[in-house]
Amino acid sequence: MIRTTAKKIYIALIFVFLYAPIATLMVLSFNASRTRAKWGGFTTKWYFSLFENREIMQALWNTLLIAFISSFIAVIIGTVACIAINNMPKRSRAVLMGVTNIPMLNADIVTGISLMLLFISLGFKFGLGTILLAHITFNIPYVILCVMPRMKQISPSTFEAALDLGASPVRAFFKVVFPDIMPGVLSGFLMAFTMSLDDFIITHFTKGAGVDTLSTKIYTEVKKGIKPEMYALSTIIFITVLLLLFLVNKAPKEKS
């Protein structure tokens, strides 16, 4: 009994540690004073002025756009790569998986500057396009990581059976293989989307002047002081995701 209580307290302490800053930000979003340092009374005005702040709205739009497109493309390339890797001879498979691990194990700052050097030497114009290419690059490994275990579990004979019964390879893939790997593909997409959304370092090196995502916008605001609208926006995003997760977890239970 004492042991289980101690365990629960330990878990609770870690959750407090992980969520204390999040709670702080939520409280700050209702702070009437413009500075973080003092409490100026309760207000909801930042939640309204937020939508009139064109820069923040633009940054939000850029962030969501990049996160969505980059994870979508990463899911396609990553899933196709998983099919190929799964059928590869052991050696080339090990090499390719090793290369896949590089962006995950390498430091973000090195990935960021290496891509920046590449884009400079290719003469690319820095902007949304370069951020997008960088995000696809670091998202693909997360997709492969999520899809690969699923891919290994399915038996190749179901696919072959579909072919024998006259399905074209593409049709056989979508009818037989894809439903089985779907959960992996979905969690790969979610993971990639989250990583893209939360990334600062790689975006910092691959963005052009005047193009901002929420992360880079916040970073430039750090010295001047963060606008309270930013806290309000993060609170809205966080609560939305929390509610979505809650609904997603609730839904299947009601069905069954």
């Binding site: 959304l197 600062f200 916040i218 750090v222 963060i226 993060s234 995003i237």
Partner: peptide, 14 residues
């Protein structure tokens, strides 16, 4: 996953 939906810079600033 969930904490990451609150921007990492803001969480650190908090």
């Amino acid at each position: 996953i969930l904490p990451m939906w609150m921007n990492f810079l803001l969480r650190t600033l908090a």
